[in-house]
Design a protein around this nucleic acid. Structure first.
Lengths: 210, 210
DNA sequence: ACGTATATCCCCCAAAACAGGGATACACCA
DNA sequence: TGGTGTATCCCTGTTTTGGGGGATATACGT
């Protein structure tokens, strides 16, 4: 915690850049390594030898934050990248993580948490705002209490359905009649108010039932 | 960061409890508020007025870590709970987050990161080990580069299929022939090597394509 | 100008799923 | 003991999907 962390800021809004700069300068342990307003500018300006953490806006004029992140990680994997955005859309977040980012910040993050997030990234760990996390874990946010409960047999059948197996194949695997499997399938469709198997699988995936 | 954080440990392995105790005692800013070996013991012993953060093992003898977490949060929502486990199974993690936990630690977490996680929880934020995060975001870890790319029309059709719509319904919605929808469907099945629609939807969900 | 990709539409036929019943056996709990 | 839930199996249909083709038009880049 005694190291000074060198931070580079990429955002096309000068206000945001200024805001973060002054925040970090008033805290201890941070050094502003530089800033850029576009992805291309960032890639030219960032010096791997004197940068620890990059704060990158998701929506840059010339490329996405994910692209920038990938490029940075490919040339300088030791640099940690934090995504920065106003939006908490699932696809943004997951794509940032896929691109190797160390976390995802909302722009209204309180100063203390911004500092924590940067320190976490520097330590090689991941930061996620609580609200962001909730969204990742449960995309469509059905009330867990409202979820119908499945019997163990139904769970088993549901898993195999999602694997792409037909009633016949499942029946062989479980040593029961295809008609029985069909009954379970119908019960599942009814329980989850799903119109067909596709909707059933989607709902189950969304709610971590598979 | 100057506050002393009062930590309560719940784990049925005395070794783990001792390990964490000595780790936190040698660091600054932590106070061991107590410990318990079972969920019931924890619920009796924890004093909401003198506990900030609870470290709870996922596999307790008498209840799951999720149940314990829910019970703690229902009586004392200001207490932050961190899940603790050897396993990084997706369902464990998501259920902990659903239960209101502030993070998920693996037992082999380095001391520094344990401290960070507790501080993060205390600040009301969330901790996730990087490896844990990767698993949450992309359950079946298909190489992103290996993912077939869809045309925009295919994406559209895929979404509607996952909503539970039939070829006929989709065709009406998109003002095209059902036969065309069927072509797109077949192309999707081929591209993703899916045996049927169920497998297609599952794969797409796993890879954040929906 | 030519190939490639996309989107569109068509055919036939088999396989699977869906809808709507009904029935039996077993366990568990009040 | 009688009800409830689960798991099992069966029937008669219709609808939808899946497998294997082929065809046309448009757009886009080389």
């Amino acid at each position: 915690m005694s190291d000074t962390i060198r931070v580079f800021i990429v955002d096309d809004h000068p206000v945001v850049v200024e805001g973060i700069k002054s925040l970090l300068q008033s805290a201890t342990g941070f050094f502003i390594a530089g800033y850029a307003h576009t992805g291309a500018e960032a890639l030219e300006t960032i010096s791997p030898a004197s940068t620890d953490v990059v704060l990158a806006d998701i929506n840059l004029p010339d490329m996405t934050g994910m692209d920038l992140c990938k490029k940075i990680k490919s040339t300088a994997p030791q640099i940690c990248v934090l995504g920065l955005s106003n939006f908490k859309e699932r696809s943004y977040i997951t794509r940032m993580v896929d691109s190797g980012a160390s976390g995802y910040l909302l722009k209204n993050t309180p100063p203390r948490q911004l500092e924590m997030a940067i320190r976490m990234a520097y330590e090689g760990q991941m930061y996620m705002a609580q609200e962001v996390m909730q969204m990742i874990v449960r995309p469509d946010a059905t009330d867990p209490a409202a979820l119908p409960r499945m019997t163990s047999r139904e769970k088993e059948v549901l898993h195999l359905i999602a694997e792409g197996m037909t009633n016949g194949e499942i029946s062989e695997k479980l040593f029961i009649s295809p008609l029985t499997v069909d009954s379970h399938r119908k019960n599942l469709l009814t329980k989850f108010s799903a119109r067909n198997t596709a909707a059933l699988v989607k709902f189950a995936m969304c709610n971590n039932l598979i």
